[in-house]
């Protein structure tokens, strides 16, 4: 093997891609079961909250409530789909399907597994985000062609939240630990990250705390792209998300190594 091929093979990206391919194959094999969740929930939420509840809500700046909500739903759906896959999905693959055990006896290691799982969670986030964007476009809620950039942003959101979720998966001893992650972290974050209302309505201290949640910069970034209301802040938010991702990925790989290699 040439030195180049060997170096490619020893990077987690390459190994991670092999794990990603495995998850893609399993998804395609079971797509009929998997496909429903991508479309139904955001559609109901967009109609019920955006148009139903939104009819009683005053405009936010230049935006109708549905226009304000739609980008937030793109970001939050990306979060939900990546989180589900990197918690319940990954835990099931690890503990019930013995997938990681099998992979460890190949040239891949714990870091490849983490990267591959996170890449797959992000792919699901991308698909879910694109589905919401398509609906929002159909309802006339999209104000700028820059909205297309929300699709790669959904992927980045998936990488970030998936990396955080993998820290939990790597340290969980029961599947019940995943429930706590949802009830104590993901769902509160969903309500408090500027998806449903502008954060400047909050008292200063709470507003600052909300900006420390990973969904907050995500929703703000997507909103800027979808409405076309660009600002330099978006660059900061992007960097914040990348920082979240890199730190969480490191931690997840560390804990996964500790779990698998004894």
């Amino acid at each position: 093997m040439t030195a180049l091929a060997q170096s490619i093979q020893t990077t987690p990206i390459w190994g991670g891609f092999r794990v990603w391919q495995r998850n893609r194959d399993a998804f395609v094999r079971a797509w009929k079961v998997e496909i429903g969740g991508i479309a139904v929930e955001p559609l109901v939420m967009l109609v019920a909250v955006g148009f139903g509840l939104g009819a009683f809500v005053e405009d936010i700046g230049d935006l109708s409530y549905a226009e304000f909500l739609a980008p937030g739903l793109i970001a939050s759906q990306a979060v939900f789909h990546a989180t589900f896959d990197s918690t319940y999905g990954a835990y099931l693959r690890m503990e019930t399907h013995h997938l990681y055990e099998a992979i460890l006896f190949t040239p891949l290691g714990p870091a490849d597994i983490v990267v591959g799982e996170v890449m797959w969670g992000a792919t699901r986030a991308l698909v879910a985000g694109a589905a919401v964007l398509t609906m929002a476009t159909a309802f006339g809620l999209v104000g700028s062609p820059l909205a297309l950039l929300a699709i790669p942003t959904a992927y980045l959101i998936g990488l970030m939240i998936g990396s955080i979720a993998m820290i939990l998966t790597a340290t969980a001893t029961t599947i019940g630990a995943m429930n706590n992650f949802f009830t104590l972290f993901v769902l509160p974050m969903f309500w408090a990250s500027g998806v449903f209302f502008p954060l400047d309505r909050l008292p200063d201290g709470l507003e600052a705390a909300a900006w420390a949640l990973p969904l907050t910069p995500s929703a703000a970034l997507v909103r800027g792209l979808v409405t076309g209301d660009m600002s330099w802040w978006m660059l900061l938010w992007l960097l914040e998300m990348i920082a979240f991702t890199l730190v969480a990925l490191r931690l997840a790989s560390f804990f996964m190594y500790r779990r698998l290699i004894k």
């Binding site: 093979q9 092999r18 495995r22 194959d25 399993a26 094999r29 399907h97 055990e101 099998a102 190949t106």
Partner: peptide, 26 residues
């Protein structure tokens, strides 16, 4: 390596089990 644990991939069919495993070896 054939370890003691039965680590077949139940998310994939038999052929896919072999193909995905091959991919781990590039």
């Amino acid at each position: 390596v054939v370890s003691q644990a039965d680590s077949l991939d139940s998310g994939l069919n038999v052929l896919q089990n072999l193909l995905s495993y091959g991919r781990y070896f590039n």
